[in-house]
Design a protein around this nucleic acid. Structure first.
Length: 586
RNA sequence: GCGCCCGUAGCUCAGCUGGAUAGAGCACCUGGCUUCGAACCAGGUGGUCGGCGGUUCGAAUCCGUCCGGGCGCGCCA
């Protein structure tokens, strides 16, 4: 509808004589918008106002000329000039009612479009370090990324969802050493846990599983482990130096192979937990990409070599640097340290190089707000590799604060413990969790109220929307119980019986859905869909309360059932994209 | 100090890339179940859109500046 009117306006503008609008002024974006006030019709254009200056004309006179030039269209009831020079379009109610038939015909596909033109987009999200369970912040990333990906799919993109597994580097060594120390503890050794180790209870659990799996094969005397190590923090030393020494000692006592065995055992356990967690949260990935694989298959070396060949890398102080300042970064970045160890940044460059090679038209990263400083350097890396920077996009997700009632919830009770995504899901349920996570703009810090999310009252917007769906299901059950059939064709043939203002308001809202999906995808703003569904449910409940559906008159009844079922379809489709269930009963 | 995000009703937030009298939920007040589910509906109270300048026919929206809050500015990952 909107695009139709825009096309009509474009034709009208083209038809105006040059003394009215000079050619230079014609290159102007033609857009119509939905009106806020019904007195202004359904759509309004400010074209005449915006054209007035360049054309040196009175805006109202210009608007009059435009209106006269607008071709007749069956869906348009009338066109008016209002205010300073707005052109208001009134659409026939019938044009909206016709949408009901389209909704019922399209069913679960209703609202989908092809604006993405089948282009390939990769959405990389969550990518939390596999050093422990996901916490509530990761939950927001998961819900946001998954919903975005769904929106892209619904608007005609080919989407790949990917999780980058940071399974390389020192943090993995610390993880392995942590598990091994806990394992020794389980075996009966007396150990002192390092300040910089992973202290969570899940490590103890994994250590227990390791012992159950291999027995005492990796047991070594504690005295040998801790002999002649530098002081830890508690003894006035440096926690990093201490844990590094501890890692070296672990490798020495276990041998590289067994150390790797502990590492892999731990990693597999944690990653398995993360996969299960996300799976239960209805967040699916097409690929789990291993950072370690980039080092093992030579990808990092190839990327670094490519940068050196292109003259964008240089050596200084024994390190290899990327001249990222040449590509908009504020300072140059180290890719290989003076000790020969490649930085995380080097992996990231190799990874984005890999993504480019896979032929994506667009790369979308979802990162935490604390990573914003990283955007410029990665874009610089991409550009240095010859990649098109406009294909690179990062969306930041702000932090989550948990509340219980009005009180801020404890994020950590003791060291290494925090509120996990799993705990949150258990408490409030997957539906409420998915919904609350995307209810607010990703740019907005999120106050997540646990009490509100799990409350089964009118305060909770999740149930408000689901209730609309369940009500239609109930209606259809009633229909059966009363022995009243339902003739869809008769309903569609009598849509003009839907003349009540509440019915029209609901119908117009339904017709808006495809546009909402497009907007939400383009703006990377799932919360737009949430707000729409809330408004739709509101229109539904209002109409439901105002007008009986199951009336005696079969023609009217079937028409109203058609409207109710169309509403149910759109609610269900929208909730599906959000990863929220659409229940038949509540 | 520099960079990113935020500042809109008592609270939590929308505001469609500048449009016509600034919206919603919650809270508060008034009403509505002998009729398809009251997890609902109808109505009401409540705002100098952080301050000050600027651009524009028109600014919550764009620009500048100041104030306040969050997060970053490693040869860490």
């Amino acid at each position: 509808m909107k695009t139709t009117i825009e096309a009509l306006l474009r034709q009208a503008l083209a038809a105006l004589p040059e003394d009215r609008v000079p050619p230079a002024a014609r290159a102007i974006a033609i857009e119509v918008e939905h009106t806020r006030d019904p007195a202004h019709g359904d759509f309004a254009s400010s074209l005449a106002l915006r054209l007035a200056k360049a054309a040196r004309q009175n805006p109202r006179a210009l608007a009059t000329a435009l209106v006269e030039a607008i071709p007749a269209h069956p869906a348009i009831a009338k066109v008016e000039i209002a205010g300073a020079g707005f052109v208001n379009f009134f659409v026939h109610d019938g044009a909206y009612r016709a949408e009901i038939a389209r909704i019922l015909a399209a069913g679960s596909r209703y609202g989908r479009s092809a604006v993405g033109e089948g282009k390939r987009i990769q959405v990389e999200f969550v990518s939390a370090n596999p050093t422990g369970p996901l916490h509530v912040g990761h939950g927001r990333h998961a819900a946001y990324g998954a919903t975005l990906a769904n929106l892209f799919e619904a608007t005609g993109w080919r989407v790949d969802r990917e999780y980058y597994v940071n399974d390389a580097g020192r943090q993995m060594d610390i993880l392995a050493a942590s598990t091994w120390l806990r394992y020794l503890e389980v075996c009966g050794e007396r150990i002192v846990f390092p300040a910089n180790g992973y202290r969570g209870d899940y490590i103890v659990t994994i250590a227990g599983a390791l012992r159950a799996s291999i027995g005492d094969a990796l047991r070594r005397p504690a005295a040998a482990v801790f002999r002649d190590l530098p002081p830890d923090t508690i003894d006035g030393g440096d926690k990093d130096a201490y844990v590094d020494a501890l890692i070296d000692r672990s490798r020495e006592l276990l041998g590289a192979e067994s150390f790797r065995q502990v590492l892999d055992f731990t990693l597999a356990d944690i990653l398995g937990d993360i996969k299960d967690d996300l799976g239960e949260f209805r967040v699916a990935f097409d690929r789990w990409f291993s950072e370690r694989s980039l080092a093992e298959d030579g990808s990092i070396d190839r990327a670094l070599a490519a940068l050196e060949r292109a003259g964008h890398a240089y050596r200084k102080d024994g390190a290899l640097w990327l001249r990222s300042t040449a590509f908009g970064d504020e300072k140059d970045r180290v890719m290989v340290r003076d000790n020969g160890v490649k930085t995380y940044f080097a992996s990231d460059i190799a990874y984005i190089f890999n993504k480019l090679e896979r032929g994506y038209d667009h790369l979308l990263y979802v990162w935490g707000a604390d990573h914003h400083g990283y955007i410029a350097r990665l874009r610089a890396g991409l550009t240095a590799l010859g990649g098109p920077p406009e294909r690179f996009e990062v969306r930041l997700v702000q932090f989550v604060t948990l509340y219980r009632g009005g009180e801020k919830a404890q994020m950590s009770t003791r060291s290494g413990e925090f509120v996990t995504l799993r705990e949150l899901r258990r408490e409030v349920g997957n539906d409420a969790a998915r919904f609350f996570y995307v209810m607010r703009s990703n740019d907005q810090h999120l106050d997540f109220d646990l009490e509100l999310a799990k409350s089964r009252t009118n305060e909770n917007p999740v149930y408000y929307i689901q209730y609309a769906h369940a009500r239609v299901a109930s209606l259809m059950r009633q229909l059966g119980e009363r022995g009243l059939g339902h003739d869809e064709a008769r309903g569609l043939a009598n849509l003009d019986r839907l003349g009540e203002p509440q019915e029209l308001a609901l119908t117009k809202r339904l017709a808006l859905y495809p546009e909402v999906l497009e907007l939400a995808a383009v703006q990377r703003a799932p919360h737009t869909l949430v707000h729409y569904l809330r408004d739709l449910a509101n229109d539904f409940h209002t109409n439901y309360s105002a007008h009986q559906v199951l009336v005696d008159d079969p023609a009217l009844r079937d028409a109203r059932i058609a409207l109710a079922r169309a509403s149910q379809t759109v609610v269900r489709n929208g909730l599906e994209l959000l990863g929220v269930g659409a229940p038949q009963t509540m």
